[in-house]
Design a protein around this nucleic acid. Structure first.
Lengths: 167, 167
DNA sequence: TATTGTTATACTCTATAACTATA
DNA sequence: TATAGTTATAGAGTATAACAATA
């Protein structure tokens, strides 16, 4: 791959060229895609769970009962994505609905015992995946990473580049 | 949104629960999606360029001429994605093919003058987008971010969780 | 036989819009 | 009028497989 170095574009000065390898949006995208797909392979192959489905289980693991709207807000998924993933999980009986008598438009969603037992199996896998990923990184660097990721998220949310639900 | 804090799942102890908000794969994914879409809006609305198309232009900006295979390696895109984006760029005359007489299976791809002028317009926009994104972050933290992202990428590549081209 | 690239096809995730049923 | 949720539909982006041309 070093052969590419011999092919630098001679028509451009350094200031004209944007280095993709050092460009933060590109790097974040490549990294996040690799991470997501690697992790999805862990729970996907074993339990037949998609990324949206996992996010819903993860949300219901943290909060006992939630409406679809709340799940979407917390896991940052579009309401149609949530609706379809909830429906799949319901068919597989990993999740159940309880009507809200105060507002019949919505329902409270919670994991069934089957859902909880899959969740209980996935959580340690997910934890060990994240641990493997970060095991070579110094703790103080991880702390910085934490802070910087939070700052970047804050910056993006503040710039109102966001979606319907948050408008 | 703090009302959610009142709803923590009482059936689970803290060690059973995985906090989505603190889970690195989830945070990377949400952040990268927000960043990509925000940036794609910048060049998408203005120039009608998709993410794969932009990555190809960016690669050809760095390297004068490349084959589709080399572009795919450098920009980490699947060969079918590259093939289709190249074809679109060619139709719009932002990119041209030059046959390789030594190997007629492949062709050398390069930006046309029109492609270069769009590239020259996008690069400052992309730079200023990245600058806006990181302007509140301390330089020493950005240096750590750089190093950690590289470590994470290295870790994922090493784990052979990768795609066809790199097998 | 292996490789470059294209195309057909399909899958995932996301998004818009139209709809329902409630409020 | 507005909101929660569903469904139809479409659009990216990605992937597999089959293929043509070439090595």
């Amino acid at each position: 791959m070093d052969s590419l170095l011999e092919k630098r574009n001679p028509a451009m000065t350094e200031s004209d060229v944007l280095e993709l390898e050092g460009f933060l949006p590109y790097r974040l995208n490549v990294l996040a895609t690799l991470v997501s797909h690697s992790l999805a392979r862990v729970y996907g192959e074993r339990f037949g769970i998609s990324i949206p489905e996992w996010r819903i289980l993860a949300t219901l693991g943290q909060f006992n009962e939630m409406t679809a709207r709340e799940i979407g807000q917390h896991s940052r998924m579009h309401k149609t994505t949530v609706s379809r993933a909830v429906s799949t999980l319901e068919k597989r009986q990993l999740l159940a609905r309880r009507p809200n008598d105060q507002d019949m438009r919505e329902a409270f969603l919670a994991m069934t015992p089957d859902g909880q037992s899959i969740y209980a199996e996935i959580v340690p896998l997910a934890r060990s995946f994240a641990r493997d990923l970060t095991q070579d990184i110094r703790p103080e660097d991880l702390a910085v990473l934490d802070r910087v990721l939070a700052q970047l998220m804050g910056r993006l949310n503040a710039s109102s580049m966001d979606r319907e639900e948050e408008a």
